[in-house]
Design a protein around this nucleic acid. Sequence first.
DNA 1: TAATATATCACACTATATGTTATAGTTCAA
DNA 2: TTGAACTATAACATATAGTGTGATATATTA
Lengths: 107, 107
Amino acid sequence: MGEKKQYKSEAFAAVHETMDALHQIGAIDKKTMRSFDKACLETLTGIKPEAIRKLRKRENVSQPIFATYLNVSRNLVSDWERGVKKPGGPALRLLSVVQKHGLDALA
Amino acid sequence: MGEKKQYKSEAFAAVHETMDALHQIGAIDKKTMRSFDKACLETLTGIKPEAIRKLRKRENVSQPIFATYLNVSRNLVSDWERGVKKPGGPALRLLSVVQKHGLDALA
DNA sequence: TAATATATCACACTATATGTTATAGTTCAA
DNA sequence: TTGAACTATAACATATAGTGTGATATATTA
């Protein structure tokens, strides 16, 4: 039903558009559509402390500024980069988005 | 130093570009630049349970799919929408991004 | 001198994960 | 039409660890 998903690549997104069109004209059923969607969803892996620091420096911002973007405390970013604490769940998704599209994607 | 920030509006972003250019040619110093940046950073407010549900329905996805996008558990989305639990920090930022740019922004 | 960035620590909180059960709607085949 | 299988959602309990707050200290920078 035109559900928006998250894909492993733009290629997957393109394929999904085709699948979606096929579904809308009745060529494929809902169940097939659902299982297809699930297969296309991306799985998130962890990120290493140094990778976080590199990412932040790539974006050329300080820890406080970086923290404000992600809506977390400044100390947390410091802890992440030193491996004291590890980002998970929503924070991991945010970092992934920044990796792919930059901090501007959060604006 | 061309730092990338998060702005309250596109107008702010435009103004920042100008400020950035002025800084690069030495018209303004680093300190002024920093304080300007801080003033432009957006403050995140909470989001009501119904707003989360509306947002998800606007994106036309189920709770499990929505959860996968945000990289949270399926039950958590249910709890958010019923007001049992409230998203904060990184999760709030993610929801804000989806509100402004849609789920595709997380792809 | 003053402001900023970063590191570091202690403490408390709650957001989140995980697992389970139940109900209802949908799909598909017998 | 019936029923089995799958999906979505709600609901609850438990445990974890991610996160926030506040403070201090050092080094850098305006």
